[in-house]
């Protein structure tokens, strides 16, 4: 365990060094990130603005501050996606394409761990902070409008669900990597997932019917952002919490299984 922490530290250090190699990215990203992330709230704002202008009430039962809380969790997870997951994915796909994955498989540490911690983009921490800011802002607005402040149970529930959300994101991404073992030119899969993930910024009540099922179970965006936000707002019921936890566990098992299978296929088939 300590050994893996050390490994993580070594990898973080390298990522920091790498990030500083490309100065423009380091400075530019940091600053631009703030602007882009704030712009991300725009669709939400437009929708609420337009509805208010047309004399319509809250969207699908969510007030604007509540929707903002969901958006905060979205920004937080997006920071994880862009800051740790996508860079590593890109690195692994490159390894598979060029055959240097062999070097990773030869290392005396768990290959999945090495692959998962391959690369980070440290400046994304700004995004994460912005996300937390939105959560706090949304909660403040919620309380201001007469909502109950979160109790200990709500905080714990939200924390647990946030952890689930991160693990869900991680599992999906491992599954994407597994796909990369079979279809090599797959750079755009990450782009596809990033674009899909954009819909997680909306409160779940926006999605109806089949789309709601799709985003709850197949691409569990709803579990990732709406659930933790609802837990914090005191709207989530225990069975839903259980669902999120169970589903996270299932997906984690699935991704570990898929990883093993892909690796076995890789080592028994490729040349």
């Amino acid at each position: 365990m300590r050994r893996y922490l050390r490994l993580l530290r070594a990898s973080l250090r390298l990522s920091l060094l790498l990030a500083m190699q490309y100065r423009w990215d380091f400075i530019g990203h940091g600053l631009m990130q703030l602007v882009w992330t704030s712009l991300g709230v725009l669709p939400l704002w437009i929708a609420y603005q337009a509805r208010a202008a047309a004399g319509l009430s809250a969207l699908g039962g969510y007030s604007f501050p509540q929707a903002l809380t969901v958006f905060g969790f979205f920004t937080l997870l997006k920071a994880l996606l862009d800051g740790a997951i996508n860079p590593s994915l890109t690195a692994v796909v490159e390894h598979i394409r060029t055959g240097t994955l062999d070097f990773i498989l030869l290392k005396p540490a768990d290959a999945q761990f090495l692959v998962s911690t391959a690369r980070q983009e440290p400046w994304r921490i700004i995004d994460a902070a912005t996300g937390i800011g939105f959560v706090v802002f949304g909660m403040a607005g919620h309380i201001h409008q007469g909502g109950a402040p979160p109790g200990l149970g709500a905080l714990l529930g939200a924390g647990l669900l946030l952890l689930c959300a991160m693990l869900l994101l991680y599992s999906i991404w491992i599954l994407v990597i597994c796909a990369a073992f079979y279809v090599v030119r797959i750079d755009n899969l990450s782009f596809l997932f990033t674009s899909l993930f954009d819909f997680a910024r909306w409160p779940r009540s926006v999605f109806r019917g089949a789309l709601h099922v799709l985003f709850t179970f197949v691409v569990p965006l709803v579990l990732m952002t709406s659930y933790p936000a609802e837990a914090l707002l005191g709207l989530l019921r225990p069975p839903q919490l259980l669902l999120a936890v169970v589903w996270t566990g299932l997906l984690l098992c699935l991704c570990r299984l898929a990883w093993r299978r892909s690796l076995a296929a890789y080592t028994s088939a490729s040349s």
Partner: peptide
Amino acid sequence: ADTFQLNRAVYD
């Protein structure tokens, strides 16, 4: 040198 450091961590 940085790769050396990484390998030091990986191989403990």
